[in-house]
Design a protein around this nucleic acid. Structure first.
Length: 483
RNA sequence: GGCCCCUUGGUCAAGCGGUCUAAGACACCGCCCUUUCACGGCGGUAACAGGAGUUCGAGUCUCCUAGGGGUCACCA
């Protein structure tokens, strides 16, 4: 039997990383089994529809490499793939349930119900629908229906007995029917509720494995009452734990946690994000941490899924992203970095040197700017105390002497290239019996005005070019002389 | 509050009754390399929530307690 999984987002906003991970696992499970991964849009709540949300889902999935075999845009044999377009198929199924005596028409208005609920809750109780309409006579129901009275259809949950199901991760889950409310299947607007549409769709679309968030775990026994009423075979349920921001809060866009889109915009590589996400809540069972999508497909298993929620660790994501960046070819690195280099105004400088000094220092591409901006825009108002460095044995006086002596020689030095400068400065230090650091420290500080820079004095000098480098060195000497 | 689920270092996690004086990774700390910072190399600190059982033996099984999460909508 072909494995069919689905990712079923509701178009109500952003794709946060938790959603993406759910999609990833569903994709992985389908692909691992040479099955079908389907995309279905659950838009039964018209009030919450957010413009552009479907596009965001498409883009995110595509950027992450999770292609879908069936979906609204690519079609398939089980369409339509948008619930609102399947609208007409739910009511007949609900009516069938009414015929079977497993559901009933309910004419209670939302207002009446809200009031009852408020009463019960203010008295400290737990509200549950009182089955008021379950005992309406057939005649009365028909009469009220004919008169055009607004209605909903509710599931008729047995008053005793158990409802249960088996979860691939959590095992057997069972609850007393007495705990369950008669949930609404068809809303007054004629649309199915999520719960009902979900069951009907998963069945009619041939879904074999339902991978979804933990929040559905406790309502799943109730869904199974529907499967049982129809005599349908149940899918394998796989409830995924929540990704948390900290021990007590789940990740949420509303609280400022990053969406996949945010991560892309700040210079994370999709491969790194996917790799990291795969490991939040799943383990291959061994030490391995680096996986391409294809490798994940091979390694993925339901057994490796975790039962407890995991905290999203952005420090580890950054580390992993940095690892991916370091593995990039120089050409690929420059390709990704270019927009940031341009923004920093250094795109015209020697790319070979830029790549060499930046690649091992880039955790996310967006931190390139702050690293290299001094190359394009020099702030000469740096603190003269930067010339003091214990390890390099420098202080402003020593630096003034060194710069005063070396600048004229540098001016006269013909070969302003990285190797030329390297040989020249190293020889200079040796001849004057200076530690390399003692010579290079003032040179680097004067050219950058920064205590910390990517690359050293030689790379910076080469990047800046003779004229600019000399100008900055002279400025440094001037500052030191006036001090 | 009722019901359901979860609980190994700060974080992700391995472990599926003996090989656990508990792996690996991130983070943190130290040392080395070094032209600052990073990279890289080496080393270190740090955990089975608590309590009862079961068993010759428990991180691994059972129960209780505590803590956390989820769910109780004409939202998905």
């Amino acid at each position: 039997m072909t494995v069919r999984t689905r990712f079923a987002p509701s178009p109500t906003g952003f794709m946060h990383v938790g959603n993406l991970r759910t999609a990833l696992y569903a994709w992985l499970w389908a692909k691992k089994n040479d099955g079908v991964f389907m995309l279905r849009i659950e838009d039964t709540d018209q009030a919450r529809y957010v413009e552009g949300a479907i596009e965001t889902a498409y883009q995110t999935l595509r950027a992450a490499g999770l292609n879908w075999d069936e979906g609204p845009d690519v079609g398939g044999d089980y369409g339509p793939y948008i619930q609102s377009e399947r609208k007409d198929m739910y009511l007949p199924y609900a009516k069938k349930l009414v015929e079977l005596g497993r559901a009933y028409y309910c004419f209670c208005t939302k207002e009446e119900l809200d009031q009852k609920r408020a009463e019960v809750e203010s008295a400290g109780g737990t509200y549950k629908y009182d089955k008021h309409c379950a005992s309406l006579s057939e005649e009365e129901v028909q009469k009220r229906l004919a008169s055009g009275e607004s209605y909903v259809i509710r599931l008729n949950v047995p008053e005793s007995g158990k409802a249960d199901f088996d979860d691939a991760i959590f095992g057997h889950i069972e609850v007393d029917c007495a705990e369950l409310d008669d949930m609404i299947l068809i809303k007054a607007d004629g649309m199915p509720t999520y719960n009902f549409a979900n069951v009907i769709d998963d069945h009619t679309m041939g879904i074999t494995h339902v991978l979804r968030g933990m929040e559905y775990l406790s309502s799943t026994p109730k869904y199974n009452l529907i499967y049982e009423a129809y005599g349908w075979e149940k899918p394998v349920y796989v409830h995924l734990t929540t990704i948390m921001r900290d021990a007590t809060h789940k990740l949420s866009k509303r609280d400022g946690d990053a969406t996949f889109e945010d991560l892309m915009n700040s210079g994370f590589l999709p491969e790194a994000v996917i790799n990291y996400l795969a490991l939040v809540g799943w383990s291959p069972g061994n030490d391995r941490e680096f996986f391409t999508l294809d490798e994940l497909k091979e390694a993925f298993s339901l057994e490796g899924l975790s039962k407890s929620p995991a905290i999203f660790d952005s420090a580890k994501l950054r580390w992993m992203n940095a690892e991916y960046i370091r593995k990039l070819s120089p050409e690929a690195y420059i390709g990704y970095a270019m927009p940031y280099l341009e923004k920093a105004g250094v795109a015209g400088m020697d790319r070979d040197i830029l790549c060499r000094i930046l690649q091992p220092r880039t955790e996310v591409f967006s931190d390139i700017g702050a690293n290299v901006d001094f190359l394009a825009a020099f702030d000469e108002n740096y603190d003269i105390e930067l010339f003091t460095n214990k390890k390099s044995k420098t202080n402003p006086e020593i630096c003034r002497a060194i710069l005063g002596d070396v600048i004229p020689k540098l001016k006269a030095f013909p070969e302003w290239s990285e190797t030329g400068l390297h040989d020249f400065l190293m020889n200079y230090a040796a001849e004057h019996e200076l530690k390399n650091g003692t010579l290079l420290w003032p040179v680097r500080i004067a050219m950058s005005g920064r205590a910390v820079t990517p690359g050293g004095a030689i790379e910076i000098a080469a990047l800046l070019g003779r004229e600019e480098a000399l100008k900055r060195l002279e400025k440094g000497l001037e500052k030191l002389s006036n001090a």
